[in-house]
Design a binder for these strands. Structure first.
Lengths: 251, 251
DNA sequence: AAGTGGTCTAGACCACGAC
DNA sequence: TCGTGGTCTAGACCACTTC
């Protein structure tokens, strides 16, 4: 075992150059969907490296969905999966402040109660639980930016009972307090109507963007939130790169 | 080098069990954000395996954004990044048909022209190019489902000049023809207005969901599309799982 | 200076599945 | 059957960064 160590060929690790090479071939269409790419052994010759290194690259491409690997058959360029995009839905407070705007928060209503039938559906509850129901409003530069309606499941997040939500926005508190969750989102458009119009200071027929999110660990949801934005004042952006991007910009 | 080969401990490869173990600790809050997790060498003892195997797991967690790794300092649980979600934006035709509904397509207008100033912005063109401008409509069970306005950059996709878009929906053709692209999405809400209302058979003030997408390889865009949906008839769903999900459901 | 992760090797055995 | 990928080892040297 003489070994490694020669490394630095161009300051860029071998596996990354290999990965980019292959991605380029796929993205350029040189290797179209369905194309069988070289087997691992061929890559070890081409790049003069061990099979482990090749395997790391090809496994990564398979994880990213760019190729599919089948034993005995080989590795094939995948067909693009419609359009998958990574959507970043930021904390409202951070979003407003990061744009250099002044942030203000207002609690409109807070009720603690036993879950209604609808609450149970929103929170995926199997039985009645105590919940907190919050309605609040976020301002950017003094103008209503979004209204928020939120349920917090006290069975899953008992600490929420001790928080003063007249001061602390529930989203900000939850994000800081509860680590790493799964979330399901639903995005739709709806007319403001009387309630939303009054709260967002908009004509009743204005189109609003509605983002609903259910946040959970495994079973019941911890919280359910519906945020309403003026439709053309706020928008979501999403980006898809064949990975390296979705994987978290990396590098 | 005696070796490997003992493998099958529980039908589940070691690296996956290790990965799930660590994810569980992070998701449950046992290892909260900022927590320093054991160093690679400790894991080799715990799991009685080589450092490569541990490294594969921890590197994967770092790619997924669950931990951050710093030389000499160690590996730390990340703070959750707002809410990242994987948004699937399907091909219209597939989406309608996969719900068992009847799909119909109608070309409203097609023009071939030199890019206008606005086209250049939408397609990120540096110079004037020939483009195809298409307006079309998709029906589900005979009812207008979405209207679409699309630009195709003939400099990047010359083959589009030969396609009969009165028969083939441009999105379907592009998805099948052009492999693996990057895409940027913008999602917003807007009132129907006169044009959209007439085409979607809606009152003018109806809230519509607007999805704009620019698809590119590296430089200029290949195509730019704006799709308009009745706001409460269609919605987007997105899901975030701390990976394994975004990485492509895998498994 | 020393501990940590980053990368890599040259093997190994296994399981799957196309042939 | 046997080529392919799947997983794993027991080392190695390096680079970085904190101590």
């Amino acid at each position: 075992m003489k070994t490694a160590g020669r490394k630095v060929d161009a300051d860029e690790p071998l596996y990354r150059r290999m990965r980019l090479d292959i991605e380029r071939r796929i993205l350029s269409g040189e290797w179209p969907p369905g194309h069988r790419i070289p087997v691992e052994h061929e890559f070890t010759s081409t790049y003069k490296c061990s099979r482990m290194t090749v395997n790391k690259v090809l496994s990564g491409l398979a994880d990213a969905g760019l190729i599919e690997r089948r034993r005995r058959a080989g590795s094939f360029v995948s067909a693009p999966r419609a359009h998958a995009a990574v959507l970043e839905i930021p904390d409202i407070q951070s979003a407003i402040q990061s744009r250099g705007e002044d942030y203000r928060y207002e609690l409109l209503a807070e009720r603690r109660r036993l879950s209604t039938r609808e609450d149970m559906k929103d929170l995926l509850l199997a039985a009645r639980q105590r919940v907190i129901h919050i309605q609040c409003r976020h301002f950017a530069n003094g103008v209503p930016f979004t209204i928020e309606e939120r349920l917090i499941n006290l069975a899953e997040v008992p600490e929420a009972a001790t928080v003063d939500f007249s001061v602390t926005p529930p989203g900000t508190w939850l994000l800081a307090f509860v680590p790493w969750l799964e979330a399901e989102h639903r995005i739709l458009a709806r007319q403001a109507g009387q309630d939303w119009g009054a709260l967002l200071n908009l004509p009743q027929d204005t189109a609003c963007l509605v983002v609903e999110r259910r946040t959970r660990r495994t079973g019941s949801a911890l919280t359910y939130v519906r945020q309403i934005f003026q439709g053309d004042r706020y928008f979501l952006t999403a980006r898809f790169a064949p990975r390296d991007g979705a994987t978290g910009q990396s590098r």
